[in-house]
Design a protein around this nucleic acid. Sequence first.
DNA 1: CGAGAACTTGATTCAACTCAACACTGGTGG
DNA 2: CCACCAGTGTTGAGTTGAATCAAGTTCTCG
Lengths: 216, 216
Amino acid sequence: MQRFKTGEMIVDPGTQLLMEGAKAAQLYTVLSGMGIRYKTLENGRRQVIGFVMPGDFVGLQAGIMGEMCHSVEASTPMRLCVFNRSRVYELYQSQPERAYALTYLAAVEEHFLGDALATVGQRSASEKIAWSLARFYARAASLDLVTKNKCPLPFRQQDLADALGLSLVHTNKTLAKLKRDGIVVWTNGELEVHNLAELQKLSGIGDDTAAPRPLI
Amino acid sequence: MQRFKTGEMIVDPGTQLLMEGAKAAQLYTVLSGMGIRYKTLENGRRQVIGFVMPGDFVGLQAGIMGEMCHSVEASTPMRLCVFNRSRVYELYQSQPERAYALTYLAAVEEHFLGDALATVGQRSASEKIAWSLARFYARAASLDLVTKNKCPLPFRQQDLADALGLSLVHTNKTLAKLKRDGIVVWTNGELEVHNLAELQKLSGIGDDTAAPRPLI
DNA sequence: CGAGAACTTGATTCAACTCAACACTGGTGG
DNA sequence: CCACCAGTGTTGAGTTGAATCAAGTTCTCG
């Protein structure tokens, strides 16, 4: 694996790691920090596709298809492991298990996107918010980022709104309601879960801990 | 490739090819006919994830992850080429180009899901409908299914509504409006495009013909 | 000819949106 | 040191796009 690594990179919050439509992109594994994947539409609106967490592989689309179809932006400082895109094909020749793991990652991503689509398409605002928080919390837990029912959640309300297809105002009001009801509190980039059972019930998620992903 | 093929299969409309959660699924390539991929939520609602067309590969998730996270149902009679799931890993060992093509397919699927998510999350009802019809029309064109601005569209309005997160009634009314405005007509399982430019403008899609997919 | 599916259409309701302030924070420069 | 500003979060009032409810109409098929 070391042969493919070309270096490490550190970026500040707000940095665009990858740009929609960019051809000559890099591939990264996230070592620390978080970010968001998003698309920008012609009408100027933004759809957040997902949140990027440590261990995630970023830029696979560019590596395989030659072009990104979404952008990735850092929300916190991030440390990244950089790979050489041109070597991806080589990997298929020489390391079938790793190639298989790559496809596995793509399949998991697809699975997750399907869930997101179902949520955005079929659920109400409070269910959407509960779903995304529960989802994030479960992934944070599997990364050992949870202490005493708390985990970091370094995004803006606008990011969550854009992920769920809600307006910022309505997102804010719905979060306020979840807080009033003693379910979750999200302040200063930190999420605190007070009633996990209720949160999961609202979100329609079982308590299946997010399955560990193979690390590339 | 022939070594992986285990046979052909013909199914009637309404048949479930693959079931959400099923472990021991098959893999198929669609030779003819169409179907839909969908998820069912706890609350009973349904999200259509996408439409299955000839040439599509179906069941990759089960092949890679061991379990489907959505179901696939035939909308027309379908003819399928059946593969043996257990051979997938073997393919990674012996045929790197084909393995690469598989990952490519997964990446394309992911791309498409991202687009769908953006549409469902950010666009208005008429934009959503225009988008899905334009999208379908472009894919049909790339499969040579379009003659004189017409192509088959063998789904129910309910399917489209469930794909876009709209109610059946509103979908129907929006389709009626597109017809009144002389843009598209969809009757008897056939789609006729009267004003492609306007349709694409509404949908926010360029006229990029869907890129050909590698065939497995 | 009756029954079930799919499709239409009109009336009414409501969840979520927009608009419009205002509050809090951290950073910058005079 | 303080005034100002830009980014983010909060709250209320009024509006609206899409949902729901409630009938019909085809159409097919046994």
